[in-house]
């Protein structure tokens, strides 16, 4: 089977596949940076948003932070295993990362259900619009990452395309990074 040129070429000193992931992350920085920047400015301009923020569940947010940090650990351990050519271990660790993603989404689901039942919907006010938009966009990235990871894990188990373990890992760490900033902004600053 002919391999795609992105897998084999390294014109810049960085494998083209990995370079592509860095470009994706560069564009994601603009997307999430824009969203968080807009939130921050509105938050500073609207002190009353602290009142709305007091209704977010800090413990749920902290637990989800722990889950994402732990899933980042399993992702980097999967990368380490792939570097050593141990595809089966890399695949297993990627599946552990997927479990982390699922846990994160389930907690988020419970959290949102409770908040919506309390009347804090996306149209309630500016704070809740940002809350659902930022956390929702981040959640979509978690879902996308988990789905891609399942495909990468399936190949890794057969010791194929092990370089992709690192690529999905870099993406996953970025998703973790975004949450590291979302957590204090949405859950702690009250």
């Amino acid at each position: 089977m002919v391999k795609p040129i992105a897998t084999l070429r390294s014109a810049t000193g960085v494998p083209t596949g990995r370079l592509a992931v860095w470009w994706v992350i560069a564009s994601e920085i603009v997307i999430f940076g824009g969203l968080l920047g807009a939130y921050l400015l509105h938050r500073l301009g609207h002190p009353e948003w602290a009142t709305y923020a007091s209704h977010t569940n800090t413990w749920a947010g902290a637990f989800n932070t722990l889950v994402l940090l732990s899933s980042s650990l399993s992702a980097v351990l999967a990368h380490n295993a792939a570097e050593k050519g141990n595809g089966a271990r890399a695949a297993n660790l990627l599946l552990v990362t997927c479990v982390g993603a699922l846990t994160f989404l389930v907690v988020k689901g419970f959290e949102w259900t409770h908040e919506i039942q309390e009347g804090f919907t996306i149209t309630a006010n500016g704070f809740w619009s940002f809350y659902y938009c930022a956390a929702g966009l981040h959640g979509l990235h978690v879902i996308a990452g988990a789905i891609i990871m399942l495909f990468v894990a399936a190949d890794a188990r057969k010791n194929q395309e092990l370089q992709r373990v690192e690529l999905i890992g870099i993406y996953w760490h970025f998703v973790d990074l975004v949450w590291i900033f979302l957590f204090p902004l949405l859950y702690i600053a009250k």
Binding site: P15, G85, N159, L162
Partner: peptide
């Protein structure tokens, strides 16, 4: 293996990880 292929295909000036 694909692992060897992918990593072996890196150019000499590639950033070492």
């Amino acid at each position: 293996s694909s692992h060897t292929e992918s990593h072996g295909a890196h150019s000499p000036n590639e950033a070492p990880h």
